[in-house]
Amino acid sequence: MISLIAALAVDRVIGMENAMPWNLPADLAWFKRNTLNKPVIMGRHTWESIGRPLPGRKNIILSSQPGTDDRVTWVKSVDEAIAACGDVPEIMVIGGGRVYEQFLPKAQKLYLTHIDAEVEGDTHFPDYEPDDWESVFSEFHDADAQNSHSYCFEILERR
């Protein structure tokens, strides 16, 4: 099963200049909980913004210009990325925008964090048809001392 995991502000903004323009430790914990011990696929820009392999996960970098870091697996196509994951129950696609666009048609599940923030962004989550998805989990949280904005975790499964 292919799943996408993303944090989205208003207007589906997911990033600005290779960074997330908010401070939500709870979302980072949600991300870790849902990706640990699963292969993660990301684009080169996302890889560069993280700066290191995510521990406890097979890191697969999709790029037309593969790098030389041998701590991760470099691939040039969506099919190659899927094959590099091996026989696993769930593959997690973690961004960025172009990689989400490439995998959305193949995805069966979306793990979304909806952030109540209007922020400037240069990267967006692809538009998706809500009628194609069923919400199977939703959990709202107010902003607090650690988390700069209110947010809602949601899991959607393709109908």
Rank of each mutant, 00 (worst) to 15 (best):
V40N: 03
P89M: 14
Y128R: 08
H149F: 00
N18F: 10
R33W: 05
L28D: 00
E154Y: 12
T73C: 14
V93C: 07
T123E: 02
V88T: 12
G97K: 04
P53N: 13
K76T: 13
D131L: 07
L156S: 07
Y111K: 00
M92A: 10
I5A: 00
L112F: 11
I5Y: 01
T73Y: 13
G51P: 12
N23L: 08
V136T: 09
K32R: 05
G15S: 00
D132W: 09
G86H: 09
L62C: 15
K109I: 11
K38Y: 07
V75H: 10
R158V: 05
G67V: 14
A19R: 04
Q65M: 06
L28M: 04
E48F: 13
V72D: 05
R12V: 06
A83W: 10
E101A: 09
A7I: 04
A84I: 10
M92V: 12
G56Q: 09
V119T: 14
R159C: 09
R57L: 00
K32M: 04
S64L: 15
D69P: 11
T123Y: 00
C85A: 10
S148H: 00
S49G: 07
K76D: 13
K32L: 10
P126V: 11
P55M: 14
K58A: 13
R33L: 11
F153K: 02
E48K: 14
E101M: 07
E48R: 15
P126R: 04
V99H: 14
I82W: 05
E118R: 13
E134N: 09
I115L: 01
D127A: 13
V13L: 05
P105G: 09
A9L: 07
Q102W: 12
D132G: 10
D69G: 13
R159M: 10
S63K: 02
P25Y: 09
K32G: 04
T123A: 15
E134L: 10
A84Y: 06
V72S: 11
K109Q: 14
Q108C: 06
D87L: 09
F103T: 06
A145D: 06
H124R: 12
S135N: 14
D144R: 03
K106E: 11
C152I: 09
E154L: 14
S3K: 02
E17K: 02
S77M: 11
K58C: 10
F137Q: 12
V88A: 12
Q65S: 13
A145V: 07
A81C: 08
G51S: 11
E154F: 08
L112W: 01
Q65L: 13
